[in-house]
Write a protein that binds this DNA or RNA. Structure first.
Lengths: 247, 247
DNA sequence: TCAAAAGTGTTTCGGTTACACCCATGA
DNA sequence: TCATGGGTGTAACCGAAACACTTTTGA
């Protein structure tokens, strides 16, 4: 923490959001079409500058989340992801972005925010495959956000943030399958989530669906740390993960 | 990413470092005594403002690290930790800090940097217990850095960053024991690190010490992701970790 | 030949997998 | 009564913990 006599160069601080949700059992990320230069017309993560001096970074993230999704705090998970500050990332000058990861249950269609002409849920495979191009370094931020979500499903109760207040174990399993991109054994999954005491707690009632036995309903439990964890299946072989590591 | 007509408020960006090392088999963090207000005379993490327009954040972190420890890149691990930007955290105004985690092998005594009257290695228990007080929100940053290191030892080869280029398995074990604050079974540890292929590779020679069989020497291997991981023993019981989670 | 540190073998045990099987509902 | 999805039982398997035991050095 320096205190030199010269005035250090100020930077502009933005908040960007990787908002993930499930739609039709597939993982989606919210993207907006930029209404202004730079990158006008291109897809980007929702976000924006801090709106007045003194606004907290986390508050700004909540505000942007509200503006884009009408999600009020409480029913959303929001956490800091990382800072992206490479000098070349924004043509307007030195703009440093504090990226956040948000997890939401399935929502009605998004509303256009102040900075975006349009907003839409995009399947993450379309982003990961490079099929859709994103403004700034938002492609990388999105990948980092997805990887964070994948990793946290193993050891935390984050998965419940994808669900509505009441959910079945089958719905919870769909979360894991969609985020990890794998298939899981229903029977074993059933016991594993119950073995992690405090992860989910049964609500008395059942949910009857078309055909088949009714499923018990659950609510998110008090624990955020899963023990034992739900280890994600190795995609095929954990080989050749040599010297890189996202830092 | 906003593009409104009003000018968003600029902030001052600093880089702070949680530099961890082992000294006499105990985990230490590097702290400096502040030479200037605010918090003059108090202990703080090394760090400072970006030094000219266009300096990359990671470069600034490397520069601060060099200034405090004479560590050149290469033999150090340095990664971004998190952003701390609460409006009240710095009495000078809106100062946002990008905290970094650095891991270094045992070093000669630190050199005073430009911003510090003195720098010293402090055992982390002294910080965690609240025995030493830190300036700004550096106590919290330090705790977050230590927790990050503890977590990464499980799944990454980070532990080798605490060692010199050549090390024995016993030395590596001391790293795990010091960082986790636990004792490990020598025999099982021995096999586990060898089972994680690519973690450490034997160099031909042995190191003879006073009394006892010579130990084989190893070097850090090519893999950064450990498989299987070295799970950290549950401190006693994994109970009551309810609704908090560092975010 | 003894102490000390390095390294090996082996048993036990808990968690995961794989899969056969039973349960409850709507059509 | 049958198809469908929910939920239970259980044997095989595998990695981790625990610990007895052997090896190689210096004193």
């Amino acid at each position: 923490m320096s205190d030199d006599t010269w005035s250090p160069p100020p930077v502009l601080l933005t908040v960007d959001l990787v908002i993930l949700t499930l739609r039709e059992s597939r993982l989606h990320v919210l993207l907006v079409e930029r209404a202004e230069d730079p990158f006008r017309g291109m897809l980007a993560l929702p976000g924006g500058f801090l709106n007045h001096d003194g606004e907290e970074i986390l508050d700004a993230a909540h505000r942007e989340l509200r503006e884009e999704t009408a999600l009020t705090a409480g029913r959303v998970h929001l956490e800091q992801l990382a800072v992206y500050g490479d000098s070349g990332r924004d043509p307007r000058g030195r703009v440093v972005s504090v990226a956040h990861l948000a997890i939401a249950p399935e929502l009605p269609d998004p509303i256009a925010g102040t900075d975006a002409t349009d907003a839409a849920w995009v399947p993450v495979e379309a982003v990961l495959s490079g099929e859709v191009e994103l403004a700034f370094d938002h492609h990388r931020i999105t990948m980092d956000g997805i990887e964070r979500a994948r990793a946290k499903l193993e050891f935390s109760s984050l998965a419940t943030a994808f669900c509505r207040e009441e959910f079945t174990i089958a719905e919870l399993q769909q979360v894991y399958e969609a985020v990890w991109g794998t298939e899981l054994d229903t029977r074993n999954f059933y016991r594993k989530v119950q073995a992690a005491k405090g992860f989910i707690v049964p609500i008395g009632t059942d949910r009857r669906s078309t055909g088949g036995r009714p499923a018990r309903l659950y609510r998110a439990g008090p624990k955020t740390v899963l023990f034992p964890p739900l280890i994600r299946p190795t995609p095929s072989a954990p080989e050749e993960n040599t010297r890189k590591e996202e830092e």
